[in-house]
C-alpha cells in the first residue's frame, strides 16, 4: 500500500539555484512608476523619451537576463541587505520572459508616440501597467499565463 512516487514527464529539471523573487518584484515596482510617468506625459517629447528608455530597460532584462539590469544592481546593493533572506529562490526564466512581453508593449507604444498615435501608445502602456502592477503587488506574471494560451491557440 505504498505507491509513493513523484514522477515527471518532459518537465524541466529543477534548477539548483535561483534568484530572490523580490528582485523582479522591485523591478516591476520601478516599472510601474515609469509607466505612470509615461501616461501622465503621453503626447509630449518627455513621454516619448521615457517610453524609449523603458523599452531599452525591458530589452536589457529580456536579452541579458533579469539579474543583469540596473534594477537588479540597485536591489542587490541597497534593498536586499535590508531584507530578511528569502524563504525560497525562483527560476529567472519567467520574469525574463515577462520582460520580453513588456518590450513588445513598449515597442508598440514607442512607434505610436513617434507617429503621433497617442491613443495607441497610451493603450499599450496602460496594458503594460496592468501587468507590471500585478507583478509588483502580487508577484503575479500575466505574460507567463498568456504564454500557454498562445501556445494552445497557435500550435
Amino acid at each position: 500500500m505504498s505507491t509513493t512516487a513523484s514522477a515527471r514527464t518532459g518537465a524541466r529539471p529543477e534548477a539548483g539555484s535561483g534568484i530572490d523573487p523580490r528582485g523582479p518584484q522591485f523591478n516591476a515596482a520601478v516599472t510601474v512608476v515609469v509607466l505612470v510617468a509615461i501616461l501622465v506625459t503621453a503626447g509630449t517629447a518627455v513621454g516619448t523619451v521615457l517610453t524609449a528608455v523603458q523599452a531599452a530597460l525591458f530589452a536589457w532584462g529580456a536579452i541579458g537576463g533579469v539579474q543583469t539590469t540596473i534594477h537588479a544592481k540597485v536591489f542587490k546593493a541597497l534593498i536586499r541587505p535590508r531584507l530578511a533572506s528569502p524563504d525560497h529562490l525562483e527560476d529567472p526564466a519567467p520574469p525574463r520572459f515577462a520582460q520580453a512581453v513588456g518590450l513588445g508593449f513598449a515597442a508598440v507604444a514607442l512607434v505610436g508616440f513617434l507617429v503621433g498615435g497617442t491613443t495607441v501608445g497610451t493603450v499599450a502602456i496602460a496594458l503594460a501597467l496592468v501587468a507590471a502592477t500585478l507583478n509588483a503587488v502580487f508577484r503575479f506574471c500575466l505574460g507567463c499565463e498568456v504564454y500557454l494560451l498562445i501556445k494552445r491557440a497557435t500550435s
Binding site: T3, T4, S6, A7, G10
Partner: peptide, 10 residues
C-alpha cells in the same frame, strides 16, 4: 501512502 505526483509539461 498511495498518493502519486505526476508533472506534465503543458
Amino acid at each position: 501512502p498511495g498518493v502519486v505526483h505526476l508533472e506534465v509539461d503543458a
